[in-house]
Amino acid sequence: MSGTGFFRAVPALKREGGSVSIRIDGRACTVRAGLSVAAALLEQGAVRFRQTPVGGAPRAPLCMMGVCFECLLEIDGIANSQSCLIEVRDGMRIGTQDGAARLAGMTEGAAP
């Protein structure tokens, strides 16, 4: 069981459509066009989207409609993006959201 994801595409609902190339945590993937980023990650077998900033607990989507905030990912450099509300796009860079938001302009270890 541990090697599998949570959801898979099913032939009975298969639709024709294009695909897009994205990067998930640096890894290049091809996913169906028109999917939300959250759905694309689930189809790729993701079982952890983020780690909570409070306790470091692993989380994955709960509601798929924008009210649970568990699907938060870093998308094209923007932290804490609700991935169930954003559609995949060619060239998109997606990263798991581990802990607090890292803003563009924050550099490693440069605490005063």
């Binding site: 900033p53 804490n80 802990g99 607090a100 938001a101 890292r102 803003l103 924050m106 605490a111 005063p112």
Partner: peptide, 8 residues
């Protein structure tokens, strides 16, 4: 939201 520490 919580942001990585930058202002002590």
């Amino acid at each position: 939201e919580r942001v990585e520490p930058f202002l002590p």
